[in-house]
Design a protein around this nucleic acid. Sequence first.
DNA 1: CGAAATCTTGAGTATAATCAAAAACGGTGG
DNA 2: CCACCGTTTTTGATTATACTCAAGATTTCG
Lengths: 268, 268
Amino acid sequence: MSPTRRRLAETKSSAGPATHIEMTFSHRLPNPIIRKLESIFALSDEEKAALSRLPVQITTIGRGQDIVREGERPTRSFALLDGFTHTYKVIGSGKRQIVAVHVPGDIPDLQSMHLPRLDVSIGTLARCEVVFMQHQILRQLCQQYPRIGAALWRETLIEASVSREWTANNGQRPGTSRIAHILCELTFRLRAVDLVEGNVCTIPMTQAELGDATGMSAVHVNRCLQDLRAGGLIRLTGNHLEIPDWSAMTAVADFDPAYLHLRDKAPE
Amino acid sequence: MSPTRRRLAETKSSAGPATHIEMTFSHRLPNPIIRKLESIFALSDEEKAALSRLPVQITTIGRGQDIVREGERPTRSFALLDGFTHTYKVIGSGKRQIVAVHVPGDIPDLQSMHLPRLDVSIGTLARCEVVFMQHQILRQLCQQYPRIGAALWRETLIEASVSREWTANNGQRPGTSRIAHILCELTFRLRAVDLVEGNVCTIPMTQAELGDATGMSAVHVNRCLQDLRAGGLIRLTGNHLEIPDWSAMTAVADFDPAYLHLRDKAPE
DNA sequence: CGAAATCTTGAGTATAATCAAAAACGGTGG
DNA sequence: CCACCGTTTTTGATTATACTCAAGATTTCG
């Protein structure tokens, strides 16, 4: 009952006046929100125009920075244009759990629109480009265009669904499957936004970070990765992950993408 | 990589024409939705009237029944009036993870309003009384009264927040804290709906079910509970849980209720 | 009251954590 | 282009936590 206290590497805050560019979406294509929403339903011209007029602030943030922190009360949410972010919680003993990983097109803290006080921190896993959008303006948008509101609501529900799957993954699967599962999920989501070339994608997470996501020690992550390599299920060099045989990999991972609620974009 | 296959006790489906009563909320007080929403913001008379006019079907369901099942496409959601339900997933090896537990006042499958295909099953942990509400009608309600829509959205966001905390709890805390944490959460939520008398509440979960929720074996749950008992942190007989010293318990559990996003109802 | 479910205890084992150190890698500046 | 430094990955050895299996005690419920 006296958990070992582990120091975390300090993450720098991105607080302070970040250098950013004020603009509306129309100056920058593709608008990731339009793209995401169109994958759900056909936007009317009016809806599209409203989205293009959204005033946003675009910023680039380096690796290992926090974008928002637990306890804050942000007045804006952000969408991820490029890079990877992760949502995490730090518990009393100083350990850290990554509870979500975000890929381009995601809106990681949309929840802050309705839950003013953040109960998690969100930081970058790589250099990121993000656009901030004021809650006030998003709320007007949702009220004026209920279908957009419903689609954003849906987005938050999918995030919840992913969170439940993580709970099941980390709670019930053995180490090797657990790692395989998270790799399958990320690959699948990256494919949905056209970030998989052939069977190769980039996953900028260290083994320690994979451990924080799966509730395993970094050493054990390493050994599980080696099992997967030895079985010919993955090829992993640096950040490049290749999954040569998708169906063999999903079998080991016990991966069924239904929980992602995407229209399947078949692999291979 | 060959996980032991464990048979699950078959849960009976509640499919088929359940005996239920058609009515509107106004015939039955208190309307749990009104109560829940009023804990978030002051409802206008008009909003209250609209909610009272909601046509609903009230049903009683015995213990150990599934209310909805993974893969189904429900056309209605339900609110829990009395009893406990749990949301769970069954993974390939046959193991089961409970990903959420619901107490009276919760709306466990509100998500099916926007994610048509269920990716989880929801079953009862005790005899339950539930009210079903057609999605169609809920959608109209949300569109006509945007504040109600926002409040329901908020409810789903809180559920997501709880799910993240479970991921962190199960991933990073040692067994005893893990069990203590889930007991704190349930007690806290029950207190919010006035179901704690003194320091005692009813939690109708078996040790095996606590294990499925925390990713631990039933045997280990038993031993952790005994640790808590030995430390004088809980008194547990049957389904009755007493937490004599709340602050000592929260210290062991590393429990901070911020993630529940409730206005604190102080214990003691 | 009896059967089934649940809880409890014990013994042996497996998975994964910890600790420690070496090797490989990646980026930087000279 | 290369040497250097910090980070990350890898390996080995040991330990701890938690699982499995099994059987007995207790409780619950019909």
